[in-house]
């Protein structure tokens, strides 16, 4: 290499180091391995995301949370306090991680981030609903109830039996002394008492025996002070018998 004057002193320093063997190119294999690692992480995080998303859908269905719509703020408050928010938090963390790693790719960083985030959310929601319908979580749930699921058994037992405060599912049996009596899912019987706080009193008077209901209210010594209620159509659960059948 011909020595030049110091028009490019920085280049000369670097090239001298190369010629002395002080600088070496990293191997192609190093970069291939790095790419595999990045793609591997993306795949792993995506699968985890789908798993958690479908788990949330499972939690909503198996605990009949979707039946709570239109039943008032008191019930919504109970759900918000009982819901396993750590699952939602983990989903956001994973979406953030996928967003950070995905920025290495031109098709991701060239677009506004909101587009990528919305695309991920839509894919997660659609995929989660589809995966949940596959009975995967219900199978795990049943195994967990039978104490045959190692590691995740406790998690599934908790998630499948979320105790939503002051929410009671059951069937109307009969009227006794002007009070409707219902049989709760647990097999217990409770009387329904109308108070000044009860909403939908007109509907209450139209209840019929045999109707399936969701009642919101505090229960004390077999009497529920009704705040709100609704008649419900329980989903036919060919793949998820409600686990009060213990």
């Amino acid at each position: 290499m011909k020595k030049e004057n110091s028009k490019n002193p920085i280049t000369e320093k670097v090239v001298s180091k190369i010629e002395r063997g002080e600088l070496k190119m990293k191997s192609r294999a190093y970069f291939v391995a790095k790419s595999f690692l990045v793609i591997g992480l993306l795949v792993l995080f995506s699968l985890l995301l789908l798993y958690l998303g479908s788990l949330i859908v499972f939690v909503l269905r198996v605990n009949d949370i979707l039946l709570f719509h239109g039943i008032g703020f008191y019930a919504i408050r109970s759900i918000l306090l009982s819901f396993p928010w750590y699952l939602v938090f983990l989903i956001f963390v994973l979406i953030l991680l996928i967003g950070v790693i995905g920025r290495k790719f031109q098709f991701v960083y060239r677009r506004p981030l909101i587009v990528s985030l919305i695309a991920i959310l839509v894919m997660v929601i659609v995929s989660s609903v589809l995966i949940e319908r596959s009975s995967l979580h219900y199978s795990f749930f049943r195994l967990a109830e039978q104490q045959r699921l190692p590691v995740a058994g406790g998690m599934y037992r908790n998630l499948g039996n979320i105790d939503i405060d002051n929410a009671h599912f059951g069937v109307i049996l009969e009227k006794q002394n002007d009070l409707w009596v219902m049989e709760l899912d647990s097999g217990e019987r409770a009387k329904l008492k109308v108070t000044e706080k009860t909403k939908g009193k007109r509907l209450y008077s139209q209840i019929e025996e045999g109707e399936k209901v969701l009642v919101i209210g505090e229960m004390d010594e077999g009497v529920i002070d009704v705040i709100n209620f609704k008649t419900i159509e329980r989903r036919s659960r060919s793949n998820n018998q409600r686990l009060n059948e213990r």
């Binding site: 180091k17 070496k24 190119m25 990293k26 191997s27 190093y30 970069f31």
Partner: peptide
């Protein structure tokens, strides 16, 4: 910068 460009040129 030039050093890193050389070392990572295979990427």
């Amino acid at each position: 910068v030039l050093t890193k460009a050389y070392v990572n040129i295979k990427s």
